[in-house]
Simulated assay, not measured.
Amino acid sequence: MNISPFHVWAIVRFLPDMQRIVVNRFRRRSDAEECLRVLRRAATGRDYTLLYYPPGEESTFMVRKEYNKLVRDRIPEILESQQIKFGIEEMTQADYCQALRQKLIEEAQEAAEAVETNLVTELADLCEVIDATMGAYGIQRNQVLACQMQRRIDRGAFSQRLRLLWTET
């Protein structure tokens, strides 16, 4: 693919292991932004970013991706072993509790969208965040299980596969 030196705006898709691919290039930023909006609407599970990315700089250009989210304890060690530069900080207890709540949403969404072959892994991640959240708030597992059993008695479980279609008030 022959790229004009004037195509300096690029839409980049991030892949696992800090890899990236250039999806498309544009002469004008406005064209790239419009395409990016369409891509983000069409492929919500993919991570696209708009960059000023002159041709020929693919091998030297470093992309800094912002996360600002809770990560597992060994992530810094893993990043160092891969010689990836990173920034990290320890959160206050209040920030940690809020980050755990955000992580619950993130992991639940990933479990909900997982294909069957990845479901066990995503559920394991969700359980890890639930355990950490219970620890942060001083909640014992037996408290949660007792509450679960009471709610099961009061409201039932999900074993009958019922879908509520409508109600009248």
Rank of each mutant, 00 (worst) to 15 (best):
I11W: 02
Y48W: 03
I78H: 12
M18K: 15
I84A: 02
E33V: 00
H7Q: 14
P54W: 00
F26K: 01
P5T: 00
R13C: 09
V22D: 04
F26R: 03
M91G: 11
N2H: 10
L36T: 04
F61Y: 05
G56R: 07
A42F: 03
A43K: 15
I88G: 05
R37I: 01
A43P: 01
E77Y: 10
Q19C: 07
M62F: 11
D17M: 10
Q93P: 02
E77V: 07
R40D: 07
N2W: 02
V71E: 06
L70G: 11
A43Q: 13
R64N: 09
Q83I: 02
Q83R: 15
A32N: 00
R28W: 04
F6Q: 09
I84Q: 08
F6T: 12
R72I: 04
E58T: 01
V71P: 01
T44H: 14
H7Y: 11
E77W: 06
M91S: 09
S4R: 05
P5Q: 01
R20F: 07
S30V: 11
Y48P: 08
N2L: 12
L79G: 01
N2K: 14
L15W: 03
P76C: 09
A43T: 07
R27P: 00
L15I: 03
V12F: 06
F61G: 01
Q82Y: 04
A42E: 14
I75G: 09
V38R: 04
T49W: 10
I75D: 06
E58K: 14
Y67D: 05
E34M: 08
L15F: 09
Q93F: 04
Q82I: 02
N68F: 08
R46T: 03
R72N: 05
I75W: 07
F86T: 00
V23K: 00
K69I: 03
P55H: 08
I21G: 12
C35S: 15
G45F: 01
Y53E: 02
V38G: 10
R20A: 15
L15C: 11
R20V: 09
T44M: 12
D31Q: 14
W9D: 05
H7R: 05
F6R: 12
N68P: 03
F61M: 13
Y96G: 14
A32V: 00
V12K: 05
L39A: 06
K85C: 09
F26Q: 03
V63S: 10
E77M: 13
V8F: 03
R28E: 13
F14N: 07
L15R: 13
K69L: 10
L51A: 13
E90T: 10
R29N: 07
D73F: 06
I3V: 13
P16H: 00
M91N: 06
L79I: 00
L51T: 02
Q19A: 08
D31N: 15
Y48E: 06
V63M: 05
P54L: 00
A42M: 08
D47T: 05
D73R: 12
P16D: 06
R64V: 06
R41I: 03
E90V: 06
E58G: 11
L50C: 12
I3W: 07
I88V: 15
L51G: 05
E33P: 11
Q19L: 11
